[in-house]
Computed example of a mutant assay.
Amino acid sequence: MVSLEIAFQVINGADVGLPVLLAIIFGVLGSAVGAVWAVIFAICFAGLVALGAISVSKKLPKLQLAYAIIQIILVAVLFLFAMICLMGMAKTAYDMIKDNSEKQWTPKMKAYLKNKDEVDKLQQQLKCCGTTAYKYEDSKYPNSCCEIRPCTVAFPKACNTAEAEKKIEVLPAMVTLLLVQLPVKIASITLIMLIRKRLMT
């Protein structure tokens, strides 16, 4: 019984990792709202972890059952969310990142001299020039827009497009994280139900 309880407490504690990772991913995607929701999600998960820990340490079968039911619901939600990510969310996330990037960089590129270092760094790293909403005049391409200087033939890709393409690469990792978390949850459900069964007999 003690070994089951120890195994449960270890797996239960690992359960908080998912929302923390989601907060990091949303931060990388540039979604402040997503990151805030992930933090709220983390706080809720911490409460669930506490519920599981207390129910096992205090030997409370009713709380153990409540914990298991909540975890089963979360398993279903996580699986559904992972499938949505795989089937259609990639396009939505791409458009969101592209629009946010355009809003962020267009004003900075219009005032290029004021934001030169920041804009140059972006354009050189992503091999891009301007945004979908703003194109430099041919005679005024900054050198960071070109591979060869002086700049006469600019990189063809807009920076908001290039930035969205780079950030969208994390979505497969996000789906993987969601799917990796499922065995942790299933293991915690199995262990707590075994503990509960022993308590009830």
Rank of each mutant, 00 (worst) to 15 (best):
L4P: 07
A7Y: 06
A7L: 09
A7W: 07
F8K: 01
V10D: 03
I11V: 14
N12Y: 00
G13S: 15
D15G: 12
D15P: 02
G17W: 01
L18Y: 05
L22W: 05
A23C: 04
A23R: 01
I24H: 00
I24K: 00
G27E: 03
G27K: 02
S31I: 10
S31W: 08
A32G: 11
V33W: 07
G34T: 02
V39C: 09
V39I: 14
V39P: 04
F41D: 13
I43V: 15
F45C: 13
F45N: 13
A46N: 06
A50K: 02
A50E: 00
L51T: 13
G52F: 00
G52D: 01
A53I: 03
A53S: 14
V56R: 05
V56W: 02
K58A: 11
K59S: 10
L60N: 08
P61G: 03
L63C: 04
L65T: 08
Y67T: 04
A68S: 14
A68W: 01
I69T: 14
I69W: 11
I69C: 10
I69K: 14
I70D: 00
I72C: 08
L74I: 15
L74Y: 11
V75P: 00
F79E: 07
F79Y: 11
L80R: 05
F81Y: 14
A82F: 06
M83R: 04
I84G: 07
C85L: 15
L86Y: 15
M87W: 14
M89A: 15
Y94P: 01
K98D: 09
K98W: 02
K98T: 01
D99G: 10
K103F: 08
K103C: 06
K103S: 12
W105E: 02
T106Q: 12
T106H: 10
K108D: 09
L113Q: 15
K114N: 14
E118K: 03
E118I: 08
E118L: 09
E118T: 11
K121V: 01
L122M: 12
Q124T: 15
Q125N: 13
L126S: 08
K127C: 02
C128A: 03
Y134F: 15
K135T: 12
K135F: 04
Y136N: 13
Y136K: 12
Y136E: 13
D138N: 12
D138G: 11
S139I: 02
K140F: 10
S144L: 03
C145Q: 06
C146E: 04
E147N: 13
I148W: 05
R149G: 06
R149F: 09
C151F: 02
V153A: 09
F155L: 05
P156H: 13
P156R: 13
K157C: 07
A158E: 06
A158W: 00
C159G: 06
C159H: 01
N160F: 02
T161G: 03
E165W: 05
K167G: 00
K167P: 00
E169Y: 12
V170S: 08
L171Y: 04
P172V: 11
V180S: 12
L182S: 11
P183D: 10
P183Y: 10
I186E: 07
I186V: 15
S188E: 12
S188Q: 13
L199I: 09
M200C: 06
M200K: 12
T201V: 11
T201Y: 07
